[in-house]
Design a binder for these strands. Sequence first.
RNA 1: GGGCGGGUAGCUCAGUUGGCAGAGCACAGCCCUUACAAGGCUGGGGUCACAGGUUCGAGCCCUGUUCCGCCUACCA
Length: 889
Amino acid sequence: MSERTLDKAYEPTAVEERWGAYWIDNNVGAPDLSSGKPAFSMVIPPPNITGALHLGHALNSTLQDILARYKRMTGYNVLWLPGIDHAGIATQNVVERQIAAEGLDRHKVGREAFIERVWKWKADSGGTIINQLKRLGATCDWSRLRFTMDDGLSKAVREVFTSLYAEGLIYRGDYIINWCPRCHTALSDLEVQFDEKDGSLWYMDYPLKEPVSGMTHLTVATTRPETMLGDTAVAVNPDDERYKALIGKTVVLPFTGREIPIVGDDSVSVEFGTGVVKITPAHDFNDFDVAKRHDLSAINVMDIDGRMNENAGPYAGLDRYAARKKIVADLEEAGLLGKIDRHKLMLGECYRCSTVVEPRLSKQWFVKVEPLAKAAIEAVESGEVRFVPKGWENTYFDWMHNIRDWCISRQIWWGHRIPAWHCADCGHVTVDTLDPASCAKCSSVSIEQDPDVLDTWFSSALWPFSTLGWPDKTEELEAFYPTTVLSTSFDIIFFWVARMIMMGKKFLGKAPFSDVYIHALIRDAQGQKMSKSKGNVIDPLVMIDKYGTDAFRFTLAVLAAQGRDIKLAEERIAGYRNFCNKLWNLARFTLMNLGEEDIDLSIEAPLNMADKWIMTRRSVCINEVKGALDEYKFDEAGRALYRFVWHELCDWYVELIKLDLRGEHGPERKAASVHVLLTVFTDILKMLHPFMPFITEELYSYLPGAGKSIMATEFPSAGRQYAEASDMEAVMDVIRVIRNIRVELNLAQDAKTDCICFANDGHLREVLEKSEEYIRLLAKVKEFEVRESSERPGNAASGIASGDNEKTVEVFIPLAGLIDYDAEEKKLRKELDKVVVEFEGVEKRLSSEAFVGKAPADVVEKERARLAGLQEKKAKLEEGIERIRSMKA
RNA sequence: GGGCGGGUAGCUCAGUUGGCAGAGCACAGCCCUUACAAGGCUGGGGUCACAGGUUCGAGCCCUGUUCCGCCUACCA
């Protein structure tokens, strides 16, 4: 026994500090490679180096930590590998802002110096999130913390790039990509977010070079008039009767005078606008495809800032929106502007800075994903990778089947620089894992490395194996690849999960994980997305300070139902803070009774009914928790524990054994009760430990014979389930009925009443007689009597308890002279009404030939028994009402 | 436009192969009963979105309707 005494209420702060430090100092997350236990491994989705812990991280890390702790306690060799992502654009933005405050920009600072600044920033303030994860209690193996820009991981990146390039799966070329005019870089399709905006649809006339059957011009409809300067064709649907004849003819582009062809293309809708589309291959994805089909040239009319360039003639130098205004005005002046419709459109924005992106033609590096995607699709189809919940597999397939090549080059400085060197003499591109000294083709030393860096997600895609030492053949890779489960949120299935599967299949021949657990998204109590601008953000660290980490973790776990968003209200956390306190006080009660006198726990006293009941419920609870956790149903596991601890152990068992504990039934009985209480309490601590690691460590340390840490104990196994448990339930129901009557009669809290029970079953009568003490104690009963004949006593309030269907107990509370007959009658009638409705329902069902003939025999049997019970109950109530009426008269 | 999920108590949500509609919070009444007032006991509260269908029996399965949320898409 510890010398420490427990305060009346749980105070998390000191406990969390102490145990948090203990786990870190002993690096409890470290696996033992020589243990011979089966492996369980996870890689953490690496948070951005710029990030602070938000609810998404808190949820995901909590769930992963629950798995890690649970698996350790059930005999696995667990590796949970932590890390951080270098987050290219995000990090560069942060440091750019920093130097902007000094009146500099990155170009003035220079590439080398800028990158040094980023590393310095990382050293100073990067990775605070790691400490926040530790605060949450995450038992990662912190000795294996990885960063995507580490040497080892960079080596993996080069290996993969070189290999894919050699196979022709990485190529470079002029393609249209999403361009952020503020970040000055290409973005992948995924890095663009769409938002519906109000816009306009302008109708403008392009004159035909030569009139055709009376037509002098074509009217095109566009949402972006400024791009007309880059038009290289207009297109119509080849089946459109209005314009069919014009295909192959020529129009003259206003302002520039350029002559451009009219082409026929299926992608043009006959119904929309005028049925004529201007084609701007350099600034529109669809137009780019049309141009490829018709071999049209492309004219880029904007620069990297989104301003019009020298190809825009008189508009050169104007911002794209200023150019739009001016062009519309000029068209109007020239009499070429038709009507203007209001039009809703989806505008793409940069996911980092929300600037409207500009489709732009430029030279970029791409991964040819189709062959990679094929293997990745098969991995899921074959069941090698399983999504939980399964519904996400469809989302995954949809995307994978329609996947476009992945633009992997970014025109920024922070990231993995593309390992390609351009030769100034022969133009050859040398790609190698090591920096080459000369051109691989002509041996010229005038080579220069490609200025671009790789998309951040390129290194993330390698995360499950690069962190384990690949491309080297390491012990870790052998032991822990493929990992067991990846836990993440659905919004990065495409960014990350799919690409990891592709790369894992490609380079290791095995998908990087067998289960993908997709957790819910957290919203506020009203179901709104949390965002800084709405001011509805809940900061996990504030919640931890306020309610304690354990309460916070438990809340997240209980709300994490599969397939549904989480609406998080602060009151929920407060509720589970109360649960922590309940547990704390249960511990105080348990320890108090272990207390001063030495209880000989080795006495093997026989279990009584209450003991057998709680031991049975314990087994049920263990099965529920294990079953739920094995299926990633954290909410079910948490709820089962909550119910068992509070509503079964605390509300009932603790109350039932109080007489034992006072020693009223002798030392043996006391020892038995304490023994059972301690057993169940210890198991509860163990089962709750994955959810609430701090308080359970603390309370466990007070238990007699406790080891250093609860983490080293084994997760409980279910034991025997006793038939007597249902006897206990019947007694509990009688107690509930008496309590109910007492409240309805408005009796003083401490008033004692007598009680007479009639049971229609011999066994039940025995059980009740045996349980006299429980009933006296918990229902405040003075004289207690079990009678065989169902003769209703005179002045008495009554109620009926039902155990199993046909077994009923009629309960009477005699109250000489005190009874309010009207109230009693009203109460009985109300109860009778309920019973009658139920009775008639069952009777009707049983009288139906169809039911008796077709329903399974056990169902019919159950219904018959139920009917008999209801019949009994109904008769008793009717008799009771009759009796009351006669007494009234 | 296509796809996915959801609609169950005032609120947030469970609801197992179809077989007695549940929990937490909130609310109301009575209690500081020696583990816990961050607590205890008791109670009220439901047209399971709507309309059909299958079935002995539907919150659950099928069809349609409707509302909400999300993902996705080249009607310029």
